[in-house]
Design a binder for these strands. Structure first.
Lengths: 190, 190, 190, 190
DNA sequence: GATGAATGAGACTTCATTCAT
DNA sequence: AATGAATGAAGTCTCATTCAT
């Protein structure tokens, strides 16, 4: 890919993040990138196309992070942890940018949205397989592996990401402990 | 409040939901409402002010739904269920509109955002008190009531709302059963 | 004339003087006058008509001041002084308002302009008659009475009004002395 | 300066002179100049800024005319005559435009106003120096040079410019003769 | 007669996009 | 290939005026 094209995308990403889609003018992007305004149109047909290109590249980058985590040689627990954490870190960083896609077309950007969730689903699928095996081997109560993986994922996100939006963040040990408490042992007095 | 003002807000809400903030022109709103364009400016200083007024009214409406559920004479379980469900239904319906507020000001609309989460927090607080009592009375394992309420809420949202975005929805009985499985009994083989 | 009509004219005069013609809205005038906006249109067909009415009333008032000075029983010198001074005071006070008429119509407001100068011309005519008599009686060199009256008027305005726009004002005695020096005795060394 | 910029300024000057500030639309100016409406905004941020630019250029042009007259190799009398005459001609031609600046800001345009009077004052200063020398050399009665120069200027304006607004214009000889009569010899019978 | 709610007409301004250089 | 001067299209907002009450 052309180095200038990347330069333009980086500049646009910066400006979109700071001022929003509508708040960013092509002049501004050109100035940040240090190129002529018309040059942008050599690479991107549209302002909208430019945004989509950026979103797509972010999605791809995110996918790579998750895949890399899963592919690594580590304990299952560790790989899941890394994959989810990678997604979350990334989402946190670029949440704004992803939301920007709504500015352009209400329903048109479902592509990016679906791409994002598809990554999450792959991670969930990965977890699902492990849960299925755990149930088969008798190390876990019988349960719907898909729903369970989904719940584990959501709970993980809740504890790692959502919780620290209003409260002091939890340590990794605490999170691990809580997951065990809620999901494995349960709150009921036996 | 003036009937015409409400008419304008409803028309704007409709158009904002369909075409987005930028995609909605004042002319369009006026035509839908069947009033002159300038009439809108009699009630709302700005296009932006108009949007904020709509968002605020939605927040207020949502708060009322949750509060009403909590105030009702029912079992605790039922009240929590209704409160969360009311919030979710509402959020589902108007999610788009709330996200629109991002189009206007990147950081300026935190008010609406905070208002929304504050409702959730009130519901969570309400649940927290009940959990605390359950722990004291020995009908539940010792645990941080706040985190536990937060987890219950998130799990509830995950099962009722998030799940059905990609999979066939779960019945109320199934949801109840799953909550029991995951949170009360746990997945571990005792 | 209706008391409300006068009230409206006074309010409009105030606002026009402060904010200009364009800068004054009918709403503003109505608020100052403490009447409904539409009430203004009961008395004045137009915003422009309203301005013209105000200008005309100012012209009339000015005319009265000059006439009154001339009609008074005093020395000729004193009457001329009073008449010119009256005009100047008035002009000073309402100069702004008179200039406003230019905002409305470039050439349409010559009426007001002509009315104003017609007053000056009447004063000049009055002086002219006295100069003519002075020349006839041999107490003044032969000269065109009209031009001379015009020059006296202009010199008077220059010394009394124009001079003090940039320099400390001259006393009445100094002005009298200067008029004598320049017009009667001349600067030439005999 | 860009040729297109000048073209726009000329077009705007024409339209402002004909229809006033308020009466001139940007569309109109663009059409006269034969450019797109937005092109005007490439050179002038505002309609108001455009007007000010025109006024400033007129002031500069006027200053040049006066300075050029003073700098010429001629008799003192002739130079003063040319300088004053230049100012008057110019003022006559563009008086309308200068008054237009009042439409925009009541008190804000004092800059242009002051610039204009500052030119007059320079001319008066120039005359003042010559009068001072004449008094010193005994060819003129003792008098305040500044006031005298001011009076000569005003009288000159009155005879050349103001007089012909209502009466047939005076010839140059007649004007010279009258200045001599009134200012040098005086009307008094010796 | 008095009013103010409602509005049409129109003004200024912005900006994504193009095209000649 | 790169550019920036030029612009058409469109949007927001203002305000003098009217008309039903």
């Amino acid at each position: 890919m052309d180095a200038k094209q990347i330069l333009i995308m980086e500049s646009a990403k910066k400006s979109f993040s700071l001022f929003g889609y509508k708040g960013t003018t092509m002049d501004q992007i050109a100035k940040i990138a240090g190129v002529g305004k018309a040059t942008i149109y050599t690479f991107f047909e549209n302002k909208e196309v430019l945004l989509h290109a950026i979103v797509q590249s972010l999605v791809a980058e995110m996918k790579a992070v998750a895949q890399q985590a899963i592919d690594q040689e580590q304990t299952t627990h560790e790989r899941i942890h890394r994959a989810i954490y990678g997604i979350l870190l990334f989402r946190k960083e670029h949440e704004l940018l992803i939301q920007l896609s709504h500015e352009v077309q209400q329903y048109g950007n479902q592509v990016a949205q679906q791409a994002l969730t598809s990554i999450e689903r792959e991670v969930i699928d990965f977890m699902s397989q492990h849960i299925e095996r755990a149930v088969s081997s008798g190390s876990m109560k019988p349960c719907d592996p898909k729903i369970t993986a989904f719940i584990v994922f959501k709970m993980y996100v809740a504890l790692v990401f959502d919780w620290e939006q209003h409260e002091p963040p939890l340590t990794d040990e605490k999170i691990s402990e809580l997951l065990n408490l809620y999901l494995m042992n349960g709150l009921a007095i036996s």
